[in-house]
């Protein structure tokens, strides 16, 4: 295992895109220390910012408040990263495989443009969870993101495939411009869920205002949703199966094939 312990916190952000098993798994301790990392507008050896223990491993542990370390796990395709603390912007962006776990909070764009693998965030996260970068026409294309805390606006924006679960509350526009995939909000969702969604499913376990461009068409009790909720509860999130859902179809301003399921029973 490779252990990176943050030596000092700085207001100037670090671009931690070299902190991935892909970049470090075949390097000796000395080579890891000399790997260049971008700090502001300078490239400096990683050893100046982190104490490095271990070598040649696809399992990385990052210790410390990495709130200003961006892009940890960027484009990672295998192995595992455990962040014992907070993480900065773009954590796990463009990830295609492996597992990434954050014990603290993260900033915006957690798992943005993700294509595979699994991200577990035990704290809160910012806006654009599993979302698309500005100018992109599709966001998350696969994999799973489980957030135990709260999330910001536009969860799963432009999502094309995969699963996003938010154990706490989320901001406005969950599932905006969603093309496919599943977003589950266990806590209270903000307004305008599923705005402009094309296909896909947004599951809201607490009642929330639905846009007029969605039509309610049935009450639903689905074994598939129970299987999904059972699986989510195995992550330690309180998502008991067996509920009845109000099913809304929309957004009719797109092709109207998306669905929002709103739980009808009260949650604890």
């Amino acid at each position: 295992m490779i252990t990176l312990t943050l030596k000092r916190e700085s207001n100037i952000p670090l671009d931690g895109d070299v902190i991935t098993p892909d970049a470090l798994h075949d390097k000796t301790n000395a080579k890891i220390k000399s790997t260049l990392i971008t700090w502001g507008n300078k490239k400096l050896p990683l050893g100046e910012f982190f104490n490095v223990d271990g070598e040649k491993s696809s399992s990385i542990t990052v210790i410390g408040n990495c709130d200003k370390v961006k892009l940890i796990g960027h484009e990672m395709s295998f192995g595992s990263i455990l962040i014992k603390g907070n993480a900065g912007y773009n954590t796990g962006s463009y990830m295609t495989g492996g597992t990434l776990e954050i014990e603290g909070n993260t900033r915006d764009y957690l798992g943005a443009m993700m294509e595979g693998g699994q991200i577990i965030c035990n704290g809160n996260t910012g806006h654009f969870l599993g979302g698309a970068y500005k100018g992109e026409s599709s966001g998350m294309e696969g994999g799973e993101i489980i957030v135990h805390g709260n999330a910001g606006h536009e969860v799963g924006g432009f999502m094309r495939r995969g699963l996003i679960v938010v154990g706490g509350n989320c901001g406005d526009f969950p599932g905006i411009f969603m093309l496919a995939g599943t977003v589950v909000i266990i806590g209270q969702s903000g307004d305008r869920a599923g705005a402009n969604m094309v296909r896909g499913t947004v599951v809201l376990m607490k009642d929330a205002p639905i846009l007029p461009s969605f039509y309610e068409n049935s009450l639903l009790r689905s074994p598939a949703i129970d299987v999904l909720l059972n699986r989510i509860s195995r992550f330690g999130i309180n998502a008991n199966p067996g509920h009845t859902f109000r099913r809304f179809n929309g957004d009719v301003n797109q092709i109207g094939k998306g669905e929002i399921l709103v739980c009808t029973s009260k949650q604890n």
Binding site: N11, N41, K68, Y89, H127, Y133, K134, G135
Partner: peptide, 26 residues
């Protein structure tokens, strides 16, 4: 952002209000 020697664009991450609120510029 030109920090890496080439332009990168990300509103919220590199826009001026957010940068100043996070006290990143020196």
């Amino acid at each position: 952002n030109f920090g890496k020697g080439y332009p990168r664009f990300n509103p919220g991450e590199f826009s001026v209000v957010d940068l100043l609120l996070r006290r990143e510029p020196d």
